[in-house]
Design a binder for these strands. Structure first.
Length: 689
RNA sequence: GCCACCGUAGCUCAGUGGUAGAGCACACCCUUGGUAAGGGUGAGGUCGAGGGUUCAAUCCCCUUCGGUGGCUCCA
C-alpha cells in the first residue's frame, strides 16, 4: 500500500503496488504522454518499474517544470538511442560484436568489434541512420527482462560474446545478483542487449538523432587488448535541439584556434619543419610578446630574477634529475658528438646496444631539454646561498621539447616544442606556504585580467601504487599537504586527483576546456622536495649548518603555445586592444582624406600603437569588412567632415554602428590609455558610450 | 603508437580513368564612394610525396608524409 510523495510535496496513496507509468497516468494524461522514466528515491528507473512501498517519486519528462532540459531525460534518450544504433549496425553487419554503449555529455557511443568482417566506414552512416529511423518509426517498447546471475551467464556463454560476458562478470563483481536485458520489442523475437538500463518506454520516444563519427578504442581502455571501433552519435528530445546542437558545433569550429590561427595569421605549422613545432608568425608573436611583457612586469614586482639557459644539456644532468632514462619514451633521442658517433659506427654498434650504453652512462650525449628545472638548479648551485637570500626565484621563458605521440599532436595545445613561462623558487621550508600563495595569486591575476573565469583547479597527488614517482614518502606527504592547504586559500572548489602528480612532486593545476570540450592543463604550481635532494642543494642556515631548500616549480600560463591556443578560443580571435596584433586601422573615405588619414596614422604609430592604414581604392564598406574579418578592435574612419573638424569617426569591433566622433588627440590618448592599462581604461568610456 | 576519415590555387572548397574548376585573396585598369563586399581584366596548380595497375592515373591499389576525430599516453 504505497504512499508516494511527489516533487511538489503532495502525496498519493494506493491500495495496490503501482507502476511508474500508471502513476503518471493517474496524475494526468499529459504527464503520461510525456513521461520517459521515473526518479524513485533519487534513482532513475524504467517507467514500467513497480512501486510497492512508500517513497518519493518524480516523473522524468524531456522538459523540467521550468521548461529547461532535463539532464536525466537526455541521458535516457541517448542511452536508448545507442541501443537502436547498435541494433541497426548489428543488422547491417552481422559479424559485428557489440561491446559497450554508454551515454555521454554530448551524445553517446557504442564500442563494436568488427573483427573478421568488413569494417564500418562513414559511408555506411546513411544506411545505419535509415535503419535507425525505421526502428524508431516502429515505436517498439524497450522491454526489460531479468535473469539470475547463473542463468544470465549461461545465456551469454551460449551466445559466445566474450565482451558481453566480461561486462556481466564485472556486474557480478560489483555486487549484482541478477543480469538484465533490454529487447526493443518482444524478448526472444526482437533484438536485445545486455544492459542495466533504464531506458525510455519505447523507441519512438527518441526524438532526433545523428550518427556523428568513428574512432578507435581499446577494450577496457587497455592497448594490449582488442581494438574496437567506437561509433559516436547524439540524440535530443526534439529536432530543433539537435539542429541547435549541430549549429553550435559549427560555431565552435569557427572559434577553433587552428581555424582562427590561419585566418588571423597568428601561427603556422609547417610539415617541412616538423609535427608539433609552432612557427610564430608576426601577428601571433605580438600576442605572445605582450603576454610575456605582462607577466614579466608582475615577476619584477614579486622579486623574481630572470635567467637564460640553453636548449640542451648533458645526459648526466638528466641522469641526476631522473629525467633520463626513466622518461626516455617522451623525449627526443639524445644528441651524440661527432667523434663518439664515428667511433660507434666503426664498432658497428646496434641501436639496442646504443640505448643500453647511453642508459648505463658509458656513452655521453646531450638531451634536448624536456624541462628547465635542471638548468635552473645548476644556476642555484653555482653560488653559495644564505638563509637570508632565500627565496631565490629564477624565471625564464624556457623552451622545452617532448616526444609526444604523433596521434596526440594538434594545433597549439599539444605540441613537441613549447615555451614555458617557467620559474623555480628555491626556498626555506618555512617559506613554502607563503611562496605557494604568491604563485597562486599570480595565476589568479592572469586569469582575472584576461577574463578567463571558466577553469577548474586540480590538486594532482601521487598514486601510491605507481612506481613512476621518485623520492621519500615522508617528503611527498609534506608536499601534498602544502598543496592542499594552498589550494584551500584559493577560494575556488578543487578536486584531488591521485596519479596526476609530477614525477618529483604534487601540483596544483588550472584546467580549461577548448571549444570542442577537451580539457587542457594550463597554469601549474608544483612543490618539490626531491630534486633538491637529488642535486644535493644546500643553503647556510642561521645555525651555520647546511640546510636543504625546497623547490617550487611554477608556470602560470603553462606554456605560451597551449595558453595562447586556449586564449584565441576564449576571445574567439577578437583580442582586447593590448593584445591585438593590429590595434587600430585608419580608413580614409577616399583619396581626398589621404593626407589627414596619414597624419592620424603617424600620430598613432608615434604614440606606440600598432596602427594600420587602408589606402586601397575600395569603398568604405569594403574596408570595414576587411578590417572586421581581421577582428581589429578599433577602426578610425576619416573623411572630409572629420578632417575639417579634426575629428575621428570611431567604430569598434563587434558593434553594429559607429561609436560617434571624437577629437584627434583624444582618440590617440584614449587608445594609448586602453592599451597601456591592459583594458582597465577604455576609449569607449572616454567617449561616453 | 592505434583505428576511421581527409590531403586539388595563398584561403575555403567543387570535380573527372583521357594532364583541372569556382568564390575569396593577389596584380593591373575604371570607379573617389560616409560605416560589413562597386565594376572589369589578369596572373596563379608536378591535384601532398614515392611506387604499382593501365594505352592512359589527380581519380584505382600499395607505401610514405601531413591533417582531423577519437583511443592510449602526457614529467
Amino acid at each position: 500500500m504505497p504512499t508516494i510523495t511527489l516533487p511538489d510535496g503532495s502525496r498519493r496513496s494506493y491500495e495496490q503496488p503501482i507502476t511508474a507509468a500508471q502513476l503518471a497516468a493517474d496524475i494526468g494524461p499529459g504527464l503520461a504522454k510525456a513521461a520517459l522514466a521515473a526518479r524513485i528515491e533519487g534513482t532513475v528507473r524504467d517507467l514500467s518499474s513497480t512501486i510497492d512501498r512508500d517513497c518519493a517519486v518524480a516523473l522524468i519528462t524531456p522538459r523540467t517544470r521550468d521548461r529547461g532540459v532535463d539532464a536525466d531525460a537526455l541521458q535516457l534518450i541517448r542511452h536508448s538511442c545507442a541501443h537502436v544504433m547498435a541494433e541497426a549496425i548489428a543488422k547491417l553487419f552481422p559479424h559485428a560484436k557489440l561491446v559497450y554503449g554508454p551515454p555521454l555529455d554530448t551524445g553517446f557511443y557504442y564500442d563494436i568489434s568488427f573483427e573478421g568482417g568488413r569494417a564500418i566506414s562513414t559511408e555506411d552512416f546513411p544506411a545505419i541512420e535509415a535503419e535507425m529511423t525505421r526502428i524508431i518509426g516502429e515505436n517498439r517498447p524497450f522491454t526489460r527482462c531479468e535473469l539470475s546471475l547463473r542463468d544470465g551467464l549461461d545465456k551469454l556463454r551460449a551466445e559466445g560474446s566474450k565482451f558481453k560476458l566480461d561486462n556481466a562478470e564485472r556486474a557480478r563483481e560489483a555486487g549484482s545478483t541478477t543480469l538484465s536485458w533490454y529487447a526493443t520489442g518482444v524478448p526472444g523475437t526482437n533484438w536485445e542487449d545486455l544492459c542495466r538500463g533504464p531506458h525510455v518506454p519505447s523507441t519512438g520516444r527518441i526524438g532526433a538523432f545523428k550518427v556523428m563519427s568513428l574512432a578507435s578504442s581499446y577494450w577496457k581502455g587497455d592497448e594490449t587488448l582488442d581494438r574496437l571501433t567506437r561509433v559516436y552519435g547524439t540524440a535530443f528530445a526534439t529536432a530543433e535541439e539537435l539542429a541547435a546542437h549541430l549549429t553550435q558545433l559549427d560555431e565552435a569550429k569557427k572559434r577553433d584556434h587552428r581555424v582562427l590561427g590561419k585566418q588571423l595569421r597568428l601561427f603556422h605549422i609547417d610539415e617541412m619543419v616538423g609535427q608539433g613545432l609552432i612557427l610564430w608568425t608576426p601577428n601571433g608573436s605580438i600576442v605572445r610578446q605582450e603576454l610575456q611583457n605582462f607577466i614579466s612586469d608582475e615577476l619584477r614586482k614579486q622579486g623574481y630574477t630572470q635567467v637564460f639557459t640553453p636548449h640542451i644539456g648533458k645526459l648526466d644532468l638528466y641522469r641526476t634529475s631522473g629525467h633520463f632514462p626513466y622518461y626516455r619514451e617522451s623525449q627526443y633521442p639524445p644528441v651524440i658528438e661527432h667523434e663518439q658517433m664515428a667511433a660507434l659506427a666503426k664498432e658497428g654498434c646496434s641501436c639496442g646496444e646504443l640505448a643500453n650504453r647511453l642508459e648505463k652512462g658509458e656513452i655521453d650525449g646531450y638531451l634536448l631539454k624536456p624541462m628547465n628545472c635542471p638548468h635552473h638548479i645548476r644556476i642555484f648551485a653555482s653560488s653559495p646561498h644564505s638563509y637570508r637570500d632565500m627565496p631565490v626565484r629564477l624565471s625564464e621563458f624556457g623552451t622545452v621539447y617532448r616526444w609526444e605521440q604523433s596521434g596526440e599532436i594538434g594545433g597549439m595545445t599539444r605540441v613537441r616544442g613549447f615555451t614555458q613561462d617557467d620559474a623555480h623558487l628555491f626556498c626555506r621550508e618555512d617559506q613554502v606556504a607563503q611562496e605557494l600563495l604568491g604563485c597562486l595569486s599570480l595565476v589568479k591575476l592572469i586569469f582575472g585580467t584576461l577574463g578567463m573565469n571558466e577553469y577548474r583547479v586540480r590538486v594532482g597527488l601521487r598514486d601510491s601504487d605507481s612506481a613512476k614517482y621518485v623520492g621519500d614518502p615522508k617528503n611527498w606527504g609534506k608536499a601534498e599537504d602544502a598543496c592542499r592547504t594552498a589550494a584551500r586559500t584559493l577560494g575556488v572548489p578543487f578536486s584531488e586527483e591521485p596519479g596526476e602528480a609530477a614525477f618529483y612532486g604534487p601540483k596544483i593545476d588550472f584546467v580549461v576546456k577548448d571549444v570542442i570540450g577537451r580539457s587542457w592543463q594550463l597554469g601549474t604550481v608544483q612543490v618539490d622536495y626531491n630534486l633538491p635532494e637529488r642535486f644535493d642543494l644546500t643553503y647556510v642556515g642561521a645555525d651555520n649548518q647546511a640546510h636543504r631548500p625546497v623547490m617550487i616549480h611554477r608556470a602560470p600560463f603553462g606554456s605560451m603555445e597551449r595558453f595562447i591556443g586556449c586564449l584565441i578560443e576564449h576571445f574567439a580571435g577578437a583580442f582586447p586592444v593590448w593584445l591585438a596584433p593590429e590595434q587600430v586601422r585608419v580608413l580614409p573615405i577616399s583619396e581626398k582624406s589621404a593626407t589627414y588619414a596619414r597624419e592620424l596614422h603617424s600620430a598613432l604609430v608615434a604614440a606606440g600603437l600598432r596602427a594600420g592604414i587602408d589606402e586601397g581604392n575600395e569603398r568604405i564598406q569594403g574596408k570595414i569588412k576587411d578590417a572586421s574579418e581581421m577582428k581589429i578592435p578599433y577602426l578610425a574612419v576619416v573623411g572630409p567632415r572629420d578632417a575639417e573638424g579634426r575629428k575621428v569617426s570611431v567604430r569598434a569591433f563587434g558593434t553594429e554602428a559607429n561609436l560617434g566622433e571624437i577629437g584627434f588627440d583624444a582618440f590617440v590618448e584614449g587608445l594609448t590609455g586602453e592599451a597601456r592599462s591592459r583594458g582597465a581604461e577604455t576609449l569607449r568610456s572616454r567617449m561616453g558610450t
